[in-house]
Design a binder for these strands. Structure first.
Lengths: 248, 248
DNA sequence: TTGCGGGATTTGTCAGACAAGCTGACAAAT
DNA sequence: ATTTGTCAGCTTGTCTGACAAATCCCGCAA
């Protein structure tokens, strides 16, 4: 008889992982830049000054600076120094950790996701191949079965949205959608929780999935976009409802 | 197993823009991960092994690993080693340097930009304030003046698109649009070059700007989205035409 | 004023060392 | 036989010192 205790969920075991002095220093410097303490083009303190100021070794300082460099906040020139980038943070697009966003920011990110999903649905309707449709139908069928048998269809839900991304035939669009979706895994899990089953939320989401699938199958870009827009809006509504529930 | 990565020789450095040994090493390791030579969850070679294989110091190796860490490709655990992230490269969204994209990739990025710009235009039409409209009209007037007097209106063009982003009242959307637009500064400059003036391309772009401005002023989201879509499509067309021109 | 050293400064790289934390194996205890 | 304690070896994190390469700044000369 194996242990009656199920294995720990790896995603729940890594909370306090603010590893390292260099990460802390990088965070403080980035905060200083964001706060406007250093203007674009300004020179940062030298490594020696930072070593003395924060009482860490030069290795730590260099690692922190390197992190800011890859984040696009600073640029360094050998012999000259480290300078705040002209367009800080525009070298790559990054969003704060899922748990660190307040409600307003989350709404904005959700809206960005909606824009991308709508565009993706329209393109998917125009470009879907036979193989794309097969994948979409398979994922939909798995969600349908999960809905009937009270199983958790979150994985099938993910597969469905991934299939839409594939059908749009644009790897950058798909990668960005996956990047954004990452921040809303809790939302999708919510759709398949018992509370949502009882209130009809799960069935409503599935109806939205069906509308999207039908529009993509017909090749109706406008309808697909509208269906995606409705799906995202409803998901936002369900998320807000669940979020406010503890208050009464 | 033979080394899948050829040794690094600083004297044969291929890309002078990747300043530094650590950047080169980081690029090679990232390429290996993308190529699937290391699967998600796999352990990377230890720092000592990398030091011996590439004949660089441990500082270089550590800086390269640190870069991959902030890029979301690897995670390190003290005492255990460095591991390929479960979802490599999904910690942030990044696009290759403007000069390194081939035509197909560029088209995909352009399409992504179109999706975002359309959504942004729709939201701007719904949310624009009086101040937003004033900024839009000011930028449009500057473009109009540049068009009449044969000046370069690229800066005003940037201001106009930035004003649309502001009017959408979503900082994440605006930041992402700016991030993408970065890769197409050449396209916007193209619109205001003498060749475009003579062929009427500049005037056509201005007409598209006017349609977008009118729709946003009226608060007509659908028309604003359509105008933005047309503007991006035309810009793509102008860009392709200019790109193929040297061939004949 | 302009051009040109040349020393001082700063980042990039190297080397060695110790501390902190993990892994696996072996011995001891139940 | 299973569990627990211990330990040795390995790996990453941090510290220290040094040198090379690139840049900056200031004084000097034409």
């Amino acid at each position: 008889m194996p242990s009656p205790i199920p294995p720990l969920d790896p995603t729940l075991t890594e909370l306090p992982r603010a590893t390292g002095l260099s990460a802390m220093l990088a965070g403080r410097l980035a905060a200083s830049i964001r706060a406007g303490e250093f203007q674009p083009g300004d020179r940062l303190p030298t490594e020696k000054q930072l070593v003395e100021r924060y009482a860490v070794s030069r290795a730590v300082v260099r690692e922190a600076i390197a992190r800011l460099k890859t984040d696009g906040f600073v640029e360094t020139r050998q012999g000259a120094g480290a300078f705040v980038a002209l367009k800080p943070g525009l070298a790559n697009f990054r969003i704060a950790e899922p748990g660190l966003l307040d409600a307003a920011d989350l709404a904005h990110v959700f809206e960005l996701r909606g824009v991308v999903e709508v565009g993706m649905a329209e393109l998917a309707a125009e470009r879907r191949s036979a193989a794309d449709l097969a994948a979409l139908n398979a994922a939909f069928a798995r969600m349908e079965q999960a809905l009937q048998s009270d199983e958790n269809g979150a994985a099938a839900d993910d597969s469905f949205h991934a299939a839409v991304a594939t059908a749009a035939h644009n790897p950058y669009l798909a990668q960005f959608a996956a990047f954004l979706a990452q921040h809303f895994s809790a939302t999708r899990a919510l759709t398949w929780q018992p509370a949502a089953r009882r209130s009809g939320g799960t069935a409503a989401a599935q109806a939205e999935h069906r509308a999207l699938l039908d529009a993509i199958t017909r090749g109706d870009a406008q309808a697909a976009g509208a269906a995606a827009r409705r799906h995202i809006a409803q998901a936002a509504g369900r998320y807000r409802a669940a979020d406010c529930k503890p208050k009464g």
